[in-house]
């Protein structure tokens, strides 16, 4: 049962930010609402004001240029990302991730901004975007700022956003040369959230040595996290199966998963190890093929 609320439908971002500034803690923002409405229907979340930004078309865009990289507006749907030609060309891993995010119905209505702001550590976009070194542009009545995605999450369902701030845009730098990103979540049913998920981005130099590695774990702690020890295993080395194995072990040790009915803590760690190894290898193999 949803508790009653006052429904506000701003006509512009400016108006939305003014409403946010006015109602601060007493309001919630709904965009696609594919996650929020579930908890509201369970009675777990109540709010006095609900600000609906789903209709804000000024935030519905996908822009790309080789210099500035990719910019996705907050109200862009998952489905639009999935079907974007430029994203398919430049960031195939994003399309791949979107294909596996819930179901078509959810992707048709759910938005990237809503997903990131919801801060579910089992969400798909955050690990991939973090691996791609993305930043989030947030705004409030006072102004705008950008936050790197790997600093965006502070706790389970908590972000670094202040009251009154709204996700406006996701920014992804243009792909670096000899870089590839691979993502896999482990789940029994394709459309489910991952029991755990791993995104790995590898950059190699001409000689095949690992220049940079970003390993991001999903649902392995209260937020999606960088596995920095695992990254350190790879960076500066000629990559081999033995190293991938070692990186997996490191990731499996540094994550902090919680056991639940779907998987024990031990199993989650094990899966993190396996997926990190596999994804690191997959990203490396792809990177080798890249120009």
């Amino acid at each position: 049962m949803i508790h009653d609320f006052t429904y506000l439908q701003p006509g512009s971002v400016k108006e939305a930010l003014a409403m946010l500034a006015e109602h601060k803690d007493d309001c919630k923002v709904i965009c696609g609402g594919q996650s929020l409405l579930i908890v509201m229907r369970q009675g777990l979340v109540q709010t006095e004001y609900l600000i609906d930004i789903k209709g804000l078309n000024e935030l519905n865009y996908i822009k790309y240029d080789d210099k500035g990289g990719l910019k996705i507006g907050a109200t862009t749907t998952h489905r639009a990302i999935e079907k974007s030609d430029v994203i398919a060309k430049k960031y195939p891993v994003l399309v791949d991730m979107e294909h596996k995010l819930a179901s078509i119905q959810v992707r048709n209505w759910g938005t990237i901004g809503g997903n990131l702001a919801h801060a579910d550590s089992a969400g798909d976009p955050a690990p991939v975007l973090t691996a791609l070194n993305a930043t989030v542009k947030v705004g409030s009545a006072k102004g705008e700022r950008t936050i790197p995605l790997d600093e965006f999450y502070t706790d389970l369902f908590e972000t670094a956003m202040e009251p009154g701030e709204l996700v406006l845009e996701v920014q992804v730098p243009a792909p670096a040369p000899k870089t590839a990103t691979a993502y896999q979540k482990f789940n029994l049913l394709e459309s489910d959230q991952g029991i755990v998920a791993v995104a790995v981005s590898i950059t190699i130099d001409a000689g095949g040595t690992c220049k940079e590695a970003r390993i991001v774990l999903g649902n392995a702690a209260s937020t999606s996290i960088r596995a920095k020890n695992a990254e350190a295993v790879l960076v500066g080395k000629k990559l081999t199966d033995a190293l991938f194995e070692k990186a997996g072990e490191a990731a499996s040790q540094e994550c902090e998963p919680v056991g639940d009915i779907h998987a024990s803590e031990e199993y989650r760690r094990h899966l993190i190890g396996v997926l990190t190894r596999r994804m690191a290898k997959a990203a490396f193999e792809q990177a080798k093929k890249m120009g």
Binding site: L189, S191, I261
Partner: peptide, 16 residues
């Protein structure tokens, strides 16, 4: 019962 909802109770779906 620990998973009395269709998020946590896993029913096979078309792809599987």
């Amino acid at each position: 019962i620990m998973n009395p909802n269709l998020v946590d109770y896993k029913l096979i779906r078309a792809p599987e």
